[in-house]
Write a protein that binds this DNA or RNA. Structure first.
Length: 171
DNA sequence: TAACATTCCGCGC
DNA sequence: GCGCGGAATGTTA
């Protein structure tokens, strides 16, 4: 895999806690859920220290994240940098982005949509590798029987995101 | 090569 | 119907 460009990390406060967004020179490349444990040797950059490009992306990310966390359709996405993903993963993420708020798909349906109906298991892996959760709505991917499947940010977050959008699932 | 955020089928309750 | 166990399966590091 390629050498990583160190992202610029920014805090984004929301009604569900403070998220951390990471920006490369190409766009938003990372979004982290609020952590109980403080910084952890991370550097956080204030708005004033950012160049125009990053300031715009940060503002767009803030708006998009808050829209999504309120169950609304995202009106405008920031530029995303998904260059770290494999071609397969990017295909999966593209399909995920087409699932609108309040809807869900099974891992198998997503696999079929990219022309690899038997790769349903790899789709799960790709969802777990999604660097920009919520904006790329990996929480809208459920198991075929209506159960939750997994979530890299923790199943509690998945349940919370699903209930915000009134998406049904089975325990 | 060994994980996996799966799915499907067959069984027993 | 539900919960198991087991097999098949594609992608990744």
């Amino acid at each position: 895999m390629n050498k990583l460009e160190e992202p610029t990390l920014c805090s984004i406060p929301t009604r569900l806690g403070t998220f951390t967004a990471g920006f490369s020179s190409r766009g938003l490349c990372q979004l982290d859920f609020p952590r109980r444990n403080r910084n952890g040797a991370r550097r956080h950059t204030g708005k004033s220290a950012l160049n125009d490009k990053l300031r715009l992306w940060l503002a767009e990310t803030e708006v998009a994240l808050n829209e999504s966390l309120s169950g609304r359709r995202v009106s405008r996405f920031p530029k995303l940098d998904l260059s770290q993903g494999t071609p397969f993963q990017r295909e999966v993420w593209k399909v995920l982005q087409r699932i609108s708020a309040g809807q869900s798909r099974s891992y198998g349906e997503i696999a079929s949509k990219i022309g690899r109906p038997k790769a349903f298991r790899a789709v799960g892996q790709a969802c777990g590798a999604n660097p920009v959760p919520i904006l790329i709505p990996c929480h809208r991917a459920l198991a075929a029987n209506g159960k939750l499947g997994g979530f890299s940010g923790g199943l509690d977050w998945k349940k919370r995101l699903l209930s915000i959008e009134k998406i049904d699932y089975r325990n």
